[in-house]
């Protein structure tokens, strides 16, 4: 028969588990962007995405505003299309906004950097599903070295 003591101890066990889950959920794991659901998507075409992955951060001036939702290859012109999911909190990027794939530090992770453009009177804001026209691809180290050698040769 279950005694009172076992019941209480099993209860403490359950509470400990809940505490652990809360710690993991709130303090350790970042589920902000997916969990609150209020996001809209923007798309951008790059020539080369380098080491960008799904779930990489999207940052504006270092502040994370969203995540890379998916990366596909356009079947017509064979360029990668990166789908960004951005928090609706930041919904007023003008159409002149540019986007680049950047690297945090020399060896760090790659992320998407948004550079908001100037907004004049007749320039609209980016809407859900819009393409960002002004894109800058990832810096690929091998390409850089190749260019460097090539330019030395032509001298």
């Amino acid at each position: 028969m279950t005694t009172r003591k076992t019941e209480i101890l099993v209860g403490i066990f359950v509470l400990l588990t809940i505490a652990a889950t809360l710690l993991l959920g709130l303090k350790v794991a970042n589920q902000g962007m997916q969990a609150n659901g209020d996001t809209y998507t923007l798309k951008a075409k790059f020539d080369n995405i380098g080491g960008l992955k799904e779930r990489s951060a999207v940052k504006v001036g270092g502040v994370t505003v969203g995540r890379v939702e998916s990366i596909e290859l356009d079947s017509d012109d064979f360029t990668p299309v990166v789908v960004l999911s951005i928090s609706t909190q930041y919904s007023t990027f003008p159409e002149t906004t540019s986007v680049a794939i950047l690297t945090s530090g020399l060896l760090g992770e790659q992320y998407v950097g948004l550079q908001p453009g100037f907004s004049f009177g007749d320039i609209e804001n980016l809407k859900d599903g819009d393409f960002i026209e002004d894109t800058k691809s990832a810096l690929v180290l091998e390409d850089l070295i190749g260019q460097f050698l090539f330019s030395r040769d032509s001298d």
Partner: peptide, 15 residues
């Protein structure tokens, strides 16, 4: 310690 952890660890993927 906490913020970089938070930026890297994903609830679905990891936990």
């Amino acid at each position: 310690y906490w913020s970089i952890m938070q930026a890297t660890v994903d609830w679905n993927e990891d936990v």
